[in-house]
Amino acid sequence: MKPLVWVFVEQEEGKVHPVSWELLGKAGELAQELDGVAEALVLGHQVESVAREAISYGADKVYLIDDPVLQYYRNEPYAQGVINLCKKYKPEILLLGATPVGRDLAGSIATSLETGLTADVTGLEIDPKSKNLIMTRPAFGGNIMASIICPNHRPQMSTVRPRTFPLPTKDPSRQAEIIREELGLREEEIRVKRVDFIPKDKVVNLEYAEVIVAGGRGLGKAQGFSLLKELAQLLGGEVGASRAAVDAGWIDYEYQVGQTGKTVRPKVYLALGISGAIQHRVGMQNADFIIAVNTDPKAPIFRIADLGLVGDLYQILPPLIEAIKKERGHGKA
């Protein structure tokens, strides 16, 4: 039997997290090296369209568990569903997004299957000799990179950060089989019940922003972020922050970029008053272009910046905002 490279497809109300398609693209590459197949797991309620979408993103087969119990994500039924599928089909590799859902789920699955799990992976390759999966991740706050293998247990599991791999091209004409499976759990058996959901006013989508205006300790005060927000809005981007700014309480954790925050790869990343500790750099060094403004010429951020400006961000920001407003006005006229 051909080795199976599996991807758990994460969806909320039928809307798929792009990391799942990024992983499906990578799974295709890994499967090729193993002479195997890339397959998708779709769990949810009324999600057949998601199964078809998975095929168009490269799945050679889709396992679909469609059950009202899976209406929204909960650890217990989702873990049970994936564990049952793994026991039945014995995949070689199982990949999940390193998202709140993926991380919640992966630890439960790996423990029940008594296999290894590598978190927050930023690189995947097949060892040409042993055919083991080599999973690379930052360790010790990003100070070192560690390659991890799981030689004697299957599946080899990892959670992978969004934006680690490119989004594959969608091909709606692709055809593949959809296998329907039963969950085998009733609502009464599930111990955690959702009684309410409070949606966020604004979902911060840092991972997929094209421009990020990020601030750090150098802002000196929480109010500094209002200037950054204005600039980000003008550019159609998002605000980001270093851990120092988040720890200071100037901005919410969900804006944090870095090893303990999000991994981003915008077209342009403006690092304002960010010293660029390694733990921050691992989250943003893959930006296409990095502009850094900092008063300290020795700040490590300048070692990776494409354009480094040594100076006071409060001197540069107001005239920059004015200049962009002018440009925008020009464009509209």
């Binding site: 008594e114 296999t115 290894g116 799990l117 590598t118 080599i134 930052p138 360790a139 990003g142 100070n143 070192i144 990179m145 560690a146 390659s147 991890i148 293998i149 799981c150 030689p151 004697n152 247990h153 390694i278 750099r281 691992v282 060094q285 010429p297 300048f302 070692r303 990776i304 910046a305 494409d306 354009l307 480094g308 400006l309 040594v310 100076g311 006071d312 001197q315 540069i316």
Partner: peptide, 24 residues
């Protein structure tokens, strides 16, 4: 009792820097 093994450990390479200019 650990299924995972460290295969290799290395220091991440920094990408090369561009221009550094003093605003002053």
């Amino acid at each position: 009792g650990s299924p995972t093994r460290v295969h290799r450990v290395y220091t991440p390479q920094l990408k090369s820097a561009g221009d550094i200019l003093f605003v002053s």
